[in-house]
Design a protein around this nucleic acid. Structure first.
Lengths: 131, 131
DNA sequence: CAGCATCCAATTAGATACTG
DNA sequence: CAGTATCTAATTGGATGCTG
């Protein structure tokens, strides 16, 4: 084991070994849960994701997608054609987070209702997207 | 209804009506999940929380606690004694998030294992705290 | 189409010192 | 004991323009 941190501190976010915080780290990023939710509905191209997650700038979208890819939640497939075509889809591991997202969805719905707010976002696969 | 946002945009984080993002907004803050987890074990005083969540500075701890309180997840009870005594505990609503945290815990554990990392944090009520 | 580069404003969080 | 106040370093994210 490398030298233990000298000070009494410990919680470096980058090396957190807490399951819950790790989960938040993976899906808590801006638009990440929405991206995952969308991809749960099937493979999407970058331009489609941009439309589905219209609040995200291309820069942010790219950034979040790269992080999700690095974390093994999604795959990025580049087709060497003109014009360029890039497809994103969930890995098996990415698929496995659905129950967690659904638990969060259910609990969050209760919270919104408690606040007198309607859940109006594009996250329900059945609803018209509103973002 | 007040004037709809003029631009095509919509996703103001502060007014997101997405259940999943609302959930992340409530428990995604720094140390929040850890605080909730600790309080799930029973009422704690500020000084006890500071010890349990040793990575958080008093400032951050106070800030996160106030937010959790404002969101109705915890209650802050002040005892007018000397020296001061303040107790924090979960509301019923706060208790209701346990299943969500546990789903995140389980999935996050799988992720850590997948990365070859051991889950060594103070989140398991039974393990010795390591923060 | 699928981005990357650059600049910049706003937010975040740590350290430190102080208080009723 | 349970915070608050202040300052500052670092990070985040939006806007804009450009490219293979």
């Amino acid at each position: 084991m490398d030298k233990e941190n000298g000070n009494g501190s410990c919680c470096r976010q980058e090396e957190t070994h807490c399951p819950v915080e790790a989960t938040i780290g993976l899906i808590g990023g801006k638009y990440k849960s929405l991206i995952l939710w969308k991809l749960a509905g099937g493979t999407l191209r970058f331009s489609q994701l941009k439309r589905e997650v219209s609040c995200a700038t291309p820069k942010m979208l790219t950034q979040q997608l790269r992080e999700l890819e690095a974390d093994g939640l999604i795959v990025r497939e580049v087709f060497p054609v003109v014009p360029p075509k890039v497809e994103y889809s969930l890995t098996d591991f990415g698929q496995s987070i659905r129950p967690v997202l659904e638990a969060m969805y259910d609990w969050g719905s209760g919270y919104l209702a408690r606040q007198g707010l309607a859940a109006n976002c594009s996250m329900t696969p059945l609803s018209r997207e509103r973002c």
